[in-house]
Design a binder for these strands. Sequence first.
RNA 1: GGGAUCGUAGCUCAGUUGGUUAGAGCGCCUGACUGUGGCUCAGGAGGUCGUGGGUUCGAGUCCCAUCGGUCCCCCCA
Length: 424
Amino acid sequence: MGPKYRAPEGMNDVLPESSHLWQYIEARWREHCHRYGYREIRTPVLEYAELFERSVGETTDIVSKEMYILQRGEERYALKPEGTAPVVRAYIEHSLHSAGSAQKLYYITPFFRGERPQKGRYRQAHQMGAEIIGTAQPSADAELLAMVMHFFQSLGILPEALELRLNTIGCPTCRPAYREAVLQFGRARSAQLCKSCQTRLERNPLRILDCKECVAITTDAPPIDPYLCDECRTHFDTLQQLLKMLDVPYKRDYRLVRGLDYYTRTTFEVIAEQGLGAQNALCGGGRYDGLVEALGGAPTPAVGVGIGVERTLLVLQALEVPMPEPPRVGVYVVAFGEAARPVALQVAQQLRYAGIATDLDLEGRSPKAQMRLANRIGARFAVLLGETELAQNAATVKDLQTHEQTLVSQAELAVWIRNRLQTS
RNA sequence: GGGAUCGUAGCUCAGUUGGUUAGAGCGCCUGACUGUGGCUCAGGAGGUCGUGGGUUCGAGUCCCAUCGGUCCCCCCA
């Protein structure tokens, strides 16, 4: 029996029982990025649709059929389907290059793709991203990858649970020749390729390499290495050396040819064996040396990563990694009798002003129900107010763990409680 | 866009080859304990069995349609 109104398909409410986990992951990401010298950037949830059409690529599924388009008058907007293009747009728009050095920017953002939802894949999902804009040095790629793996580690995910897959897809100088080689390879075996790969072949031949259906055929496809230009080869070699030096394990994956048009050279993803179903990529990213220029900026190399928040959460839960408990109030104020209720509210405020997380009944429940609630929400102390206490401007503080009761004057209440909350 | 699967109380689920007033646990409320939680016990509230048709003397149970969830393909974080 569905309720009359539900959240849109593939879009989820984060309920209080799990919102603290989101806060935790997001706080960790912020901390982590600050530790690596990044600063936060926030961009609108909407951009002019054209931004994504130009950057992500008109022929990609994302742009051709998954974007949420909003038309308002003459303006065509799209809910952002990924995080990088808006950051690059902002970088150009606000001349962030003028800072003189490469910009390290991080963000946390929702993004939207109109696809059938499944485990770990939603129509509104959330991404933690980081971009280094303004350097072509492989040390940027290496630092970014080390940061990402360090981030997962800091959340308590063991390195064995993850696999960093790494590849290079060359640059506009060398990729065309490789593309041609794969195209020839594919054409020669066109009949054996799956249906979608046959159309893929003409549009974006490299994509046949990461088709699961056609692995058996494409396993013999030519590797890119002999086709790489000197610059791309040096970049990739150096990156691999740096990763080894930094003890960041990775696996070369010749099939890792990302979906978005803007990638050059380095591509990577981190996959998890457990916790995610078919959507086992926790994060993905790569170098996009042509994007800033393509969007109207000066030629500016860059590299970036996006980490799925939902997917990270699923992995943490599947691996049973310890995570924080939801916040609890320390004190619950209980009123015995109607006369005590306004005083209870007053006392609760007094405790809150003193910085003590406090709650009380606002529904007129019986004392017993109030006590039950105090216990259930995990409060450490119940502050009891009845005729006896009111007569003395005092309160009975009950320690709900030890059952000890102490009569404390209302004036000293906050200090009395704060001392015990700190020491226990 | 295609496919698989599920849909009984707020939540997790029982409901036998179709057979009277549809059940349990958790949670909620009340009481035992007239101003005191956690344990126990006794009561109570809460359900158009997703919806609409059909078969039947009779449908939660069978058939069809439809809606929704979940998972998978495609694609991607």
